[in-house]
Amino acid sequence: MAMIELQHLTKTFGSGETAVHALNDVSLGIEAGEVFGIIGLSGAGKSTLVRCINLLEKPTSGRVIVDGKEMTALSGKALREARRSIGMIFQGFDLLMQRDALGNVRFPLELAGVRRADADKRARELLKLVGLEGREGAYPAQLSGGMKQRVAIARALASNPKVLLCDEATSALDPTTTESILELLRDLNRSLGVTVVVITHEMRVVERICSRVAIIADSRIAELGEVQEVFLHPKTEAAKKLVLPSRSGKLEGFTEDAAATAVDECRGELIRLAFDGSSTDRPIIADMILSCGAPVSIIYADTRTIEGRLYGHTVLQLPSDAETADKMKRWLASQGISYTKEVQ
């Protein structure tokens, strides 16, 4: 039995002409103890999906079963009790600004009616667990984003939940802090066995900690499977769009002026090389420069190497000398690398 079982979940906001279908027949099973990723572009419905798990959003139809309990059948006190076994953290941390760190972590215990002394003791332990020992008396306004999220994690864990939902939990953090929060989440998953559901629009978050991932697009699950498999062999358009670097990368900050200041021999035309995974990651540009005997400028590059295969785009500025430029284009063609003339 899965820890979280979503069956034919549908969520519609509004009705009639203006109705928005945020979720369309979504079924999903998340196993106990796994770190599960739900990834999608903004507006795909992933936030609605995670909020349906603890019924912050009431699904229009379908069933939500968490730890054997049918959440969708509960209401009032029973629902509030059930929510206590599901911790949740948010993009904006959502801490109580007028309570210090200890008070924030103690908050869910107060809600559950735990004795003050016991609640304090548990809150201290949790703050220590998330690496904030000694900051018990600090108010959220005095803490950095990463620290605030640590307090929020401690707070979410206070009631010993079996599930931890993370709704874009690292999206407001810088890359280094994101790393450390993800590491903490993975540690907690391993040490406490808590099932973690990560909602994000960032590939690297899923790559970093998730074992399985669901790609959600247009209110449906487009693809679901092991992270490796889904990211290496995206089958659907939606998945490809997320996984592979964009095909229409703009040349930001590049102007004709910038082109004019390039070294003389590199003032030629711009071409865009597209790598679709068919070429390996050998140093193509370096090879081209060596075999043609002239330098080029790399104006833009957005590539990813997945299992030794190269995906993405690179925009080059060829030498102004037409003969050398032609030679390079012929060389690229002979290597089977497709290119297009880049139009500004």
Binding site: K77, F90, D94
Partner: peptide, 17 residues
Amino acid sequence: DRGVIEASQSMGASNWQ
């Protein structure tokens, strides 16, 4: 903040709480 209220609901707070 609406988010703080929602976070409290996610922790099982009653309306009175």
